[in-house]
Amino acid sequence: MVSCNSDKKKGEKAIEANPETSTEKTMTTVEKSIENTKWLISSLEGQDLTGEQEIYFILDAETNRVSGKSGCNTFMGTYTIEEGNRISFSELGSTRMMCPDLKINEAEVLSVFELADNFTVSDGTLSLNKAKRAPLAVFKKAVVSNEPIVEKYWKLKTLEGKEVSMTDNQEREVYFTLKGHNNSVTGFAGCNIMQGVYVLEEGNRIRFTNMATTLKACPDVDFNEAEFLKIFEIADNYIIDGDVLSLNVGRRAPLAVFEAIYMH
């Protein structure tokens, strides 16, 4: 389902007849600062959602389109920003995946964009509001691709303390890469291609969600793919030392150690 474009134009300018004395109504720096940024939800109608399934949205300043994830499904639409931190969204289109284990009511998330008519932003926190009532939802700015873990090819070196080498029948080496533009994870798990979503937080915290693989069977490959994929379920922090990356849970010994490989 695809949403309709709004008739309004963001940052529409009012120009006087005399160009020498013209004045323009333009968006403030604060208004512009919310665009081209990934905003992760932290609360919904006062309920803390930190650490739950990833819910986010991004405003594309070039196309005036909003896109995001409401917990299970992705959504899209258009938006308009006007003076005084006013904002409005078109009716949103959404995918229709069924996620019976989802703890969040996606309809409530989407209703935020239906109801919101203004926003406030301060210290990396964005609130979408209706009139002057309490925030409908609060979002935090996501940490993005300037982190050294992002946009690198990480080759697996050790798994649960044991060295890993590529077997004769293995299609390629085990690795993963974090993409900065859409917070996606891609990689190869020993037999199957894998993909998912990641979130980086302060203090080298990391969370992986929606990890999935192809369903190929590789009976001749001597590698415990399930053990490797389990890493992405439980890892909650990382350490980088030069070109060496450790994925960890708590303060335990590393779950897995990777080496950055540079392609020429």
Rank of each mutant, 00 (worst) to 15 (best):
L40G: 00
L40Y: 06
I41W: 01
I41G: 00
I41D: 02
I41T: 04
S42Y: 07
S42F: 03
S42D: 14
S43H: 10
L44P: 02
L44Q: 06
E45L: 13
E45C: 01
G46M: 15
G46W: 14
Q47Y: 09
Q47L: 14
Q47F: 14
L49I: 11
T50G: 05
E54F: 15
E54P: 04
I55V: 14
I55A: 02
Y56D: 03
F57M: 06
F57Q: 00
I58C: 10
L59F: 11
L59M: 12
L59Q: 07
D60S: 08
A61Y: 08
E62W: 04
E62L: 13
E62R: 15
T63S: 13
T63Q: 03
T63K: 11
N64Y: 06
N64V: 06
R65H: 11
R65E: 13
R65N: 08
R65K: 15
V66C: 04
V66F: 10
S67I: 04
G68K: 06
G71I: 10
G71L: 07
G71W: 05
N73F: 07
T74W: 09
T74C: 01
T74P: 01
T74A: 04
F75M: 01
M76R: 06
M76Q: 12
T78C: 02
Y79H: 00
Y79W: 03
